Simulated assay, not measured.
Amino acid sequence: MTPAPEIRLAHPDEFAAVAALRWRWVAEQDGPPDRDQAAFVCDFAAWARAHADTHRCLVAVQDEQVLGMAFLALTPRVPTPHDFSRICGDVQCVYIVPEARDSGLGGLLIDETLRLATEFGLERVTVHSSDRAIPAYLRHGFARSENLLQSEPRIAAERPPS
């Protein structure tokens, strides 16, 4: 019998597996990256260790294999007279290997990410989702917001002045 998947914070020795998932995701979307994969895995794992305080990495593990990941990025907010410890979060880099998709792992990762956000007392959590994943986020507590706007500064800088 296959054991149930475990959703938890990644151990530092799993950051290489997380990096391999990130590589696989980019290759699926954009084709093979033109960078050495082993170097990327090493650099990504170092980045994840260096940013562990601001980017909490969660993994979906089954049979000792990392099948999915999600990051909760933590951002301090400007204090108010009532609260000097305001923090918001952003869900980033949620990925499940294709052979494990539609099994509920993504939803488990979303739920655990939101549980962690609650543990940190975050004011709000945002996500920039792919079209395919929007229904999953909506099922797991996210809602559309008319007040959340975004700008892409690199694209805006390329536009001629109006």
Rank of each mutant, 00 (worst) to 15 (best):
M1I: 10
M1G: 14
A10T: 12
A10C: 09
H11K: 13
P12F: 05
D13N: 15
E14I: 04
F15L: 10
A17E: 15
A20S: 13
W25N: 09
E28H: 13
G31Y: 05
D34L: 12
D34C: 03
R35G: 02
R35V: 10
A38Q: 15
V41A: 06
D43H: 06
A45Y: 08
A45T: 09
A45I: 03
A46R: 07
A46N: 07
W47E: 13
A48K: 08
A48I: 02
H51D: 00
R56Y: 09
L58V: 08
V59Y: 07
A60N: 05
E64H: 14
Q65N: 08
G68A: 05
A70W: 05
T80E: 01
T80G: 04
F84N: 14
C88E: 15
V94E: 00
P98M: 00
P98D: 03
E99P: 02
A100S: 14
G104R: 07
L105E: 07
L109T: 04
D111F: 04
T113V: 15
R115S: 14
L116R: 14
A117F: 15
A117Y: 13
T118M: 12
E119D: 14
L122G: 02
T126N: 06
S130K: 10
S130H: 11
S130R: 12
A133C: 08
A133I: 10
H140D: 00
G141Y: 01
F142C: 02
S145K: 07
S145Q: 09
L149P: 01
E152M: 02
A157P: 00
P161G: 06
S162Q: 15
